[in-house]
C-alpha cells in the first residue's frame, strides 16, 4: 500500500501543473488549430471546412512582416548578448556584497507595466522630446531626423524590455564559476584575455544559451514595441495577428499566422539547440 503511494506521489505532484497546461495550453492550441481551418465571418459564424489555403494566403500576404520579425528578433538578441554580458560579468565578479542590489536595479523597470514603460520611451524619443529637441536646437541633427517610427526605435525598445531576461541567466552561469578555476587559469600562464576566452566565456555559454531562448522567441513575436515606437514600415507579425483578431475579426487568418509563427520559431530554436546544444557549445569552445 505504502509502496503504491510512493510510486504515485510524483504523478500527484505533477497534477496541478498538468491540468493547468491541459486547460490553458493544449485546449486553446487545438481550438486555434481548428479555427485556422474554418471559413466564414463574424456575422454568420465560422464553419470547419479544412480550408488550408488560409495558410498559404496568409504567408504570401504577410511574409514581409514574418521576415522582419525574425530579423528584429535576431538583431535584438545579438545586441542583448553584447550588452548583458558585461553587465552580468561586472555584477558577478565585481559586485561584492552589493550583488543583489545591482540585480534588483536591473529588474527595477519591471515594476512598471510593460506598455507604460514603452510609452514613456515614446515620450523620450519623440521629435519634440527631451532628447531630440535640444540636439536639433544645437544644430547637431537636421530637421528631418527622427528616431520614433524607425527600426532603430523598435529594436531599441525590444532590447530595453528584454534586457533582464538576458542578464539574469548569464549572471547565474557566471556566478557559478569557481573563482579558483579562474585563478588556476592565471596560474597556468593565461593572461586576463586568454582566461576570459578559454575559461570564463565557455563556462558562461549555458547562460547565454538560456538567455537567447528567453529573449529571441518573445522578441520575435512582440506586438507592443513596434506599435508604440514604430511605424507602418516596422510592422511586426505580432501586430498583424493582433489586428486580424481584434480589428478585422478574421480569426482563421490570425490563427493560421499564429501557427506559422510558432512553427518558424520552433524550427529556429530546435536548429539552434541542435547546432549549439550546451554540451556541444562547450566542446566547440574547448577546441
Amino acid at each position: 500500500m505504502n509502496r503504491v503511494k510512493r510510486q504515485i506521489a510524483p504523478y500527484l505532484l505533477v497534477l496541478p501543473g498538468g491540468i493547468w497546461l491541459l486547460i490553458f495550453f493544449a485546449v486553446p492550441m487545438v481550438a486555434m488549430l481548428s479555427l485556422s481551418l474554418q471559413e466564414g465571418d463574424i456575422v454568420h459564424g465560422y464553419q470547419f471546412t479544412g480550408h488550408w489555403q488560409t495558410y498559404t494566403e496568409a504567408i504570401s500576404a504577410y511574409q514581409t512582416q514574418i521576415y522582419r520579425s525574425l530579423i528584429y528578433g535576431a538583431i535584438t538578441t545579438i545586441v542583448l548578448i553584447a550588452m548583458a554580458f558585461p553587465i552580468a560579468f561586472w555584477i558577478a565578479f565585481y559586485g561584492g556584497r552589493r550583488k543583489s542590489t545591482y540585480l534588483f536595479l536591473v529588474l527595477l523597470p519591471f515594476f512598471v507595466s510593460f506598455v507604460l514603460r514603452t510609452i514613456s520611451w515614446r515620450q523620450i524619443l519623440t521629435d519634440e522630446g527631451p532628447l531630440l529637441s535640444p540636439l536639433r536646437d544645437a544644430g547637431l541633427i537636421g530637421q528631418s531626423f527622427h528616431i520614433l517610427g524607425t527600426p532603430f526605435a523598435v529594436i531599441g525598445g525590444l532590447v530595453y524590455n528584454f534586457l533582464p531576461f538576458m542578464v539574469l541567466p548569464i549572471y547565474v552561469a557566471l556566478e557559478r564559476i569557481d573563482p579558483r578555476v579562474v585563478e588556476a587559469a592565471r596560474d597556468l600562464y593565461a593572461n586576463p584575455i586568454t582566461t576570459f576566452r578559454r575559461v570564463i566565456f565557455p563556462l558562461a555559454l549555458p547562460g547565454v544559451f538560456a538567455g537567447v531562448l528567453m529573449t529571441f522567441v518573445p522578441a520575435s513575436s512582440d506586438f507592443v514595441n513596434s506599435e508604440v515606437l514604430g511605424s507602418s514600415d516596422t510592422t511586426m507579425i505580432g501586430q498583424v495577428i493582433q489586428a486580424q483578431f481584434l480589428d478585422n475579426s478574421d480569426y482563421p487568418t490570425a490563427s493560421a499566422l499564429s501557427f506559422v509563427l510558432m512553427l518558424v520559431l520552433l524550427i529556429g530554436v530546435f536548429t539552434y539547440a541542435r547546432i549549439l546544444g550546451t554540451e556541444d557549445v562547450m566542446k566547440v569552445a574547448a577546441r
Partner: peptide
C-alpha cells in the same frame, strides 16, 4: 584545495 579543474 578543491582541485579547480576546468570543468569544460
Amino acid at each position: 584545495q578543491s582541485y579547480a579543474l576546468f570543468p569544460h
